[in-house]
Simulated assay, not measured.
Amino acid sequence: MMRVQKKGDLTLSPLYIELMKEGLLSIDDLAEICSLHPDLILRFREIGLITPAVELFDKPYFSNDTIMRLKKIYRLRRDLGVNLIGIEIILNLLDEMEDLRREIRYLRSRVRI
């Protein structure tokens, strides 16, 4: 049986404590950290710009990497005026480039051995 922990007047459930240990963030956490409306973050999730690390009880929880991704999305929209479809294409290309860089680093390390 998991015990409920108290923090001041706030009662923290074991599930919440575990999520915090894992560094997982709720939509509200992301909204506060990134100064975005939660509905906008939900929209980004619906169209696939961000993906939760895990879903518990029909609630999505995101890794810390999502913060940087949301900042990229916001910069592309605000600074460059890119629409959501364009943002999706750009982010997919950036992800692919990062995967290729990782693969090149791995292959270089194997050649040096």
Rank of each mutant, 00 (worst) to 15 (best):
V4S: 10
V4E: 08
V4D: 04
D9S: 11
D9Y: 03
L10Q: 12
T11S: 07
L12S: 07
S13F: 11
S13R: 07
L15W: 03
L15I: 14
Y16A: 13
I17W: 00
E18D: 15
L19I: 06
M20H: 12
M20Y: 08
K21G: 00
K21D: 15
L24P: 01
L24F: 10
L25A: 01
L25M: 06
L25Y: 04
L25C: 13
S26K: 03
I27S: 05
I27R: 08
D29N: 13
D29I: 02
D29S: 07
L30W: 00
E32V: 10
C34N: 12
C34I: 06
L36S: 10
H37R: 13
H37D: 15
H37G: 09
P38G: 03
D39N: 11
D39F: 01
I41K: 03
I41D: 06
L42A: 00
R43Y: 11
F44K: 01
F44R: 03
R45A: 10
R45H: 05
E46W: 04
I47H: 02
G48E: 04
G48T: 01
L49N: 06
I50L: 04
I50N: 04
I50V: 13
I50T: 05
T51Y: 00
A53G: 11
A53F: 12
A53I: 09
A53P: 05
V54T: 11
E55W: 02
L56I: 14
F57R: 14
F57L: 15
K59R: 15
K59T: 05
P60E: 03
F62S: 10
F62I: 12
F62E: 04
F62P: 08
N64T: 09
T66D: 02
I67P: 07
I67R: 00
I67F: 00
I67M: 03
M68W: 02
R69A: 05
L70V: 03
L70D: 03
K71P: 00
I73K: 04
Y74S: 14
Y74T: 14
R77N: 13
R77W: 03
R78L: 13
R78K: 15
L80K: 14
L80C: 14
G81S: 05
G81T: 08
V82D: 06
V82N: 01
I85D: 13
G86H: 01
G86M: 06
I87A: 09
I89E: 13
L91S: 11
N92R: 14
N92D: 15
L93P: 12
L93Y: 12
D95T: 08
D95K: 09
D95I: 00
E96D: 14
M97Y: 11
M97I: 09
D99L: 09
R101F: 03
E103D: 13
E103K: 13
E103T: 09
I104R: 07
I104V: 15
Y106R: 15
Y106H: 06
Y106K: 12
L107G: 06
L107I: 13
L107Y: 07
R108C: 06
S109Q: 15
R110I: 06
R112Y: 08
I113P: 01
